[in-house]
């Protein structure tokens, strides 16, 4: 029973990865909108883009990790 609850919890935690995908998409979309408005400044901001994506994605990866822990280590 407890193991099954853990699996449910893992599924719920997995939602977090999808939500992080929203965040990453948001970062990329905002970058693209800004880049199309001012293409000359776009190239200098790619590093910032990747940092933003990394931070947004890290939280999704955390929830993925929680899911994995619930699946395999609890």
């Amino acid at each position: 029973m407890e193991g099954q609850l853990a699996h449910i919890g893992a599924g719920l935690a997995g939602l977090g990865t999808g939500l992080a995908a929203l965040g990453v998409g948001n970062v990329a979309a905002s970058y693209l909108a800004g880049a199309l408005r001012n293409p000359s400044a776009a190239a200098s901001q790619t590093a910032t883009l990747f940092i933003g994506i990394a931070f947004a994605e890290a939280l999704g990866i955390f929830s993925f990790l929680v899911a994995l822990l619930l699946m395999f280590a609890v």
Partner: peptide, 13 residues
């Protein structure tokens, strides 16, 4: 923490 888990988590996932 985030620095390490981001890398390992991404690759592992």
């Amino acid at each position: 923490v985030s620095h390490s888990i981001r890398l390992a988590g991404n690759v592992m996932a």
